[in-house]
Design a protein around this nucleic acid. Structure first.
Lengths: 222, 222
DNA sequence: TGAAAATACCCCCTTTAGGGGGATTGTATA
DNA sequence: TATACAATCCCCCTAAAGGGGGTATTTTCA
């Protein structure tokens, strides 16, 4: 018995979600598992311990938090779920931006009906998937561009999520601040900053500050 | 009286160099200043103190050291001269690679006659310049991609060149090696490695190892 | 041939980073 | 209500980084 692919859908138009779910459920390998009406809900969803979605279908334009902000959050926190952007725009600039933010697929709403199932299966296999009316060469070059850090390593080591404070400290470390300077900037005791440094090293599984900076750059935290 | 633009040409076919020089010299704002027949000569040329070239016309396929290796060398050493690639290939993958290696222009040999003067002036002004028969959108996206680190900051601070040893140490630092590990790897005394670390900090004008790693990543040394 | 630069090593010293604990709040949430 | 976890702080200690000098040899190149 084959493992099902669990999919979560996020769009601010409920009718579109219903349509997507209807299409997805025609395939026996895929099962929808909840939906979100804005970016905030998506983030709450991924932070939910019982969340077992493999793939997220994400609209770009959503209230509260939009798709871009959600992708940024995912990237900074090293969220494992694969994201397919479902967009009304068929514009290279946008595809490019989404890719640089780490999405695995991009499907225009025009093409969603025919291609969404194919897309879900592809990204779940670890591939990238694109469906748009854009020039084929363009898509090839964009998708081959590997701006996505995970794209290079098939099995990225699973890292613990960073807290807000840890992220702030990491950002300041990347600005060549030392512990004392970080403490002054954040109005904390140096001992506190040292604690965060230690938990960063532990969570990101790196040896020293060099590994921290490389993580920060790869994940575009800086 | 306007400052002339000094141009150095590198190609393994002398006849092509002569052709280029003939074309360039028809323009009174541009003056050719020497030529090279392979990549090694180009590197010797840029390391020459009397070298006052502003722009380098560089062929991709050359003996001894090819254009890719020259660009890599330039990038690692933070060489200030702007490079225009003169290529027989009209292939997106190649344009892409050259761009990521920091070239400012790409002109195919087919188009050289009509566009080389325009191209030289453009890159000298700090712009990017492309002339190829490739799809226009493709070129736009590639040129707008800003893989070139210098592209972002108009006036990149001039840094001293790194020596071979310093580069090796920097690469190992970026692999999270500490001084002792680097010393063992390179069969050096730890005191020697410490000396290189200090000169790296001084030459790259950074505060600590974080700045070193960021430099290394931006310049694709790692 | 002679100066400059690269390579390799040394000293002393202070600051910073990191390893390994522990403790206290407050706030979710199961 | 008990548990978990984020956020804040503390201790002790060692290892590593960095700042400031210095010297000797070799290589490069004008």
């Amino acid at each position: 018995m084959k493992e099902k692919i669990y999919v979560h859908v996020a769009d601010d138009h409920k009718i579109l979600i219903e349509g997507i779910i209807a299409v997805i459920n025609t395939d026996e390998d895929i099962e929808t598992i909840g939906y979100s009406l804005n970016g905030k809900e998506v983030i709450d969803w991924v932070n939910n311990k019982d969340n077992k979605a493999d793939v997220l279908i994400l609209d770009i334009t959503m209230p509260v938090l939009d798709g871009i902000e959600v992708l940024t959050y995912f990237q900074q926190r090293n969220i494992k779920q694969k994201v397919i952007i479902l967009s009304s725009y068929d514009d290279v600039k946008i595809v490019q931006e989404m890719l640089s933010l780490g999405c695995r697929g991009y499907i225009t709403k025009n093409n969603a009906g025919e291609h969404i199932i194919e897309g879900i299966k592809a990204v779940h296999r670890g591939e990238q998937y694109f469906s748009s009316d854009l020039h084929k060469d363009l898509i090839n070059i964009l998708s081959g561009h590997k701006v996505v850090p995970e794209g290079e390593m098939p099995e990225d080591k699973l890292l613990e999520e960073l807290t807000e404070r840890e992220l702030k400290v990491l950002k300041l470390i990347s600005k060549e601040y030392n512990t004392t300077e970080i403490a002054n900037t954040l109005n904390l005791a140096t001992s506190t900053v040292k604690t965060y440094r230690k938990s960063l090293l532990r969570k990101l599984k790196v040896k020293n500050v060099v590994g921290l900076v490389m993580y920060a750059m790869k994940h575009k935290i800086i």
